[in-house]
C-alpha cells in the first residue's frame, strides 16, 4: 500500500481524521524547512504538502501567491528544495508530498525530477495545472519511481468525470471543495457535503478535502465525511506570522472526530 494511504488510514483508525498542512518551501529561506517540518510532525500532522514556488501561480489565492514570491526572492528553486529534503529526510517520518506547477518540472526534466524525488524520499506529487487529460507522461515517470500522482477532483465536476479520475487516483483523492483558488473561506456551497459523500462512496482510496478550509470547526465538519483535510493558506499565514499555537490548534482539531460526532 502507498505510504500516504497508509498514514491516512492510521489517522482515521485512531479516531480522528488525517490532517495535511501545506507550507511553501523557501518562505523565510530554505534554512528553516527542517525546523518547520519537525514542528508539524511533532504537532501531529499526518503528512506535509510542500509547495514549490512559481512565478505565475494561477491556481492560488493571495496568501500562497505572496509566500511564493517571498520564497522566490529568497532564491528558492525546485532543485534546492529536493537537495534540502534529501538532507533532512531521515528526521522526518511523515510522508512529504510536493505541490508544484508544471513548468518548473518541465524545466528540471520530468524523468530526472521523478528520479530525484524518489531519492529524496518524496511520497507523492500534486500538479495543479495538469488535468486528467494531460497526466499520462507525468504519471508514468512517477510510477516508475514508486511515487503517487495525487489527483484533484472538483466536487462540482460532472459525475462521469469524477468517476474516471477517481479510478485513476493514487495515494488519496484531493477533493476540491470550492470552485476557485486556494485561500481562506467562511462558507462552502450548499451541496458540498452530499457531493463529498458521493465521492467517498465511489472511492477505493482515502478522500481528503481541501481549498478554503481554515478554521478548527471547518476541519471537524469536513473530517466527519472526508478521511482528512488539507489546510493551506491558514497554515502558510500562521507560519509567516510565527503563530504556532494556531497551527497546533488546527491540527488537534482533527483528532477525536469520531467521538465528537457521537
Amino acid at each position: 500500500m502507498s505510504e500516504i494511504t497508509k498514514a491516512i488510514l492510521e489517522a482515521r483508525e485512531s479516531g480522528g481524521c488525517a490532517f495535511v498542512p501545506y507550507i511553501m518551501a523557501g518562505d523565510g529561506g530554505l534554512g528553516r524547512l527542517k525546523e518547520d517540518l519537525l514542528f508539524l510532525q511533532e504537532a501531529g500532522a499526518t503528512a506535509v504538502e510542500l509547495g514549490i514556488p512559481f512565478s505565475d501561480p494561477a491556481a492560488d489565492g493571495p496568501v500562497i501567491q505572496e509566500a511564493g514570491l517571498r520564497a522566490l526572492a529568497a532564491g528558492t528553486t525546485l532543485k534546492a528544495v529536493i537537495e534540502e529534503v534529501k538532507v533532512i529526510r531521515d528526521d522526518v517520518h511523515i510522508p512529504i508530498i510536493f505541490m508544484t506547477y508544471l513548468n518548473p518540472v518541465l524545466s528540471y526534466g520530468m524523468a530526472g525530477f521523478a528520479n530525484d524525488c524518489q531519492e529524496a524520499g518524496i511520497a507523492g506529487v500534486i500538479v495543479p495545472d495538469v488535468p486528467f487529460e494531460e497526466s499520462e507522461p507525468l504519471e508514468d515517470c512517477l510510477r516508475m519511481n514508486g511515487i503517487d500522482l495525487i489527483r484533484l477532483i472538483p466536487l462540482s465536476a460532472p459525475e462521469e468525470r469524477i468517476r474516471k479520475i477517481a479510478e485513476a487516483a493514487e495515494g488519496f483523492i484531493y477533493a476540491v471543495t470550492v470552485d476557485g483558488i486556494t485561500g481562506v473561506r467562511d462558507s462552502f456551497g450548499g451541496t458540498t457535503d452530499s457531493r463529498l459523500e458521493q465521492l467517498k462512496e465511489m472511492a477505493t482510496i482515502p478522500v481528503l478535502a481541501g481549498f478554503g478550509i481554515s478554521a478548527p470547526d471547518q476541519v471537524r465538519d469536513f473530517g466527519r465525511t472526508a478521511d482528512g483535510v488539507i489546510v493551506g493558506s491558514a497554515i502558510v499565514d500562521a507560519l509567516h506570522r510565527e503563530d504556532r499555537e494556531l497551527i497546533k490548534e488546527l491540527i488537534s482539531s482533527a483528532k477525536n472526530i469520531a467521538v465528537a460526532a457521537e
Partner: peptide, 19 residues
C-alpha cells in the same frame, strides 16, 4: 483532438476548468 500543434498546445489548466 488533444489540442496539439505538433508537441505544442494542450490543456494545462486546473481540473475545475476542464468541464
Amino acid at each position: 483532438k488533444a489540442g496539439r500543434f505538433g508537441e505544442y498546445g494542450g490543456r494545462f489548466v486546473p481540473e475545475t476548468l476542464m468541464p
